[in-house]
């Protein structure tokens, strides 16, 4: 519940090092903070500001633009039911009603046990598999009332722990650039020459 841990600072510095400008790492670091605490804390935002060289207000400004960042605790499982056109055509509205009944909460709220948060979501890019939902950004396709109840039951009983991490973790695999292979980021002002593989007299003919 706080600033980024020592391990996470190490990951953060690795991420920052990939960009010509540190501020570009803001969104990846916000994800890192959310992974650590389940939501983005004020302390983490201040810490990210220090790491990327901006103010905490700027970090907050960026963070609040994006739907995925939460600023107060949400359920361990964030259930996003898609309601955009293709899903709506195939029963998303009914599925949402069913979900509200099953979980006993309205969309936009969290169950008292802190396990589930139910949200209306927008197009999840799985339109042919309507209606769809995501639990912590893991898909479930062609969801029926029965498969929804089964899913909730599985999550409640911890049967999907391997596939679906707790809220905050999106991808379980991180990019790692090996030190001996990476080219390294260079600030744009430090580059004036064309890259090594481009033919040197590049002035005529190559642009249109």
């Amino acid at each position: 519940m706080a600033r980024l841990s020592e391990d996470n600072v190490r990951i953060a510095l690795e991420i920052i090092g990939r960009y010509p400008r540190a501020k570009s790492a803001t969104i990846p670091l916000l994800h890192l903070a959310q992974q650590q605490d389940g939501f983005v804390t004020n302390e983490a935002m201040a810490h990210i500001g220090e790491l990327v060289g901006t103010t905490s207000a700027e970090v907050l400004g960026t963070a609040t633009f994006y739907e995925m960042f939460k600023f107060e605790p949400v359920g361990k499982y964030l259930v996003n039911i898609c309601g955009t056109m293709s899903c709506a055509l195939l029963g998303a509205e009914a599925l949402m009603h069913h979900a509200e009944h099953t979980l006993g909460i309205k969309a936009g709220s969290t169950t008292p046990d802190g396990l589930f948060t139910l949200e209306h979501a927008e197009c999840q890019a799985a339109c042919t598999e309507a209606p769809t939902l995501q639990v912590n950004y893991r898909y479930r396709f062609r969801v029926t009332n029965e498969t929804f109840d089964q899913l909730i039951d599985d999550l409640r009983n911890g049967r999907l722990g391997d596939e679906i991490p707790a809220h905050g973790t999106v991808a379980k695999i991180r990019q790692r650039i090996p030190a001996d292979r990476g080219v390294g980021a260079v600030a744009p002002e430090d580059v004036t020459e064309p890259p090594a593989w481009m033919p040197a007299p590049q002035a005529q003919g190559s642009t249109s």
């Binding site: 990939r18 960009y19 570009s24 969104i27 990846p28 916000l30 994800h31 633009f65 994006y66 739907e67 995925m68 960042f69 927008e122 197009c123 999106v170 991808a171 990019q175 650039i177 090996p178 292979r181 990476g182 080219v183 390294g184 980021a185 890259p195 090594a196 593989w197």
Partner: peptide, 22 residues
């Protein structure tokens, strides 16, 4: 990375990800 396939073509590809904004 550096000197791809032994040529002087070098490139980093950085995975960046968004956070939900159409």
């Amino acid at each position: 990375g550096k000197n791809i396939l032994g040529t002087d073509f070098s490139l980093d590809i950085v995975l960046h990800w968004g956070a939900g904004a159409y």
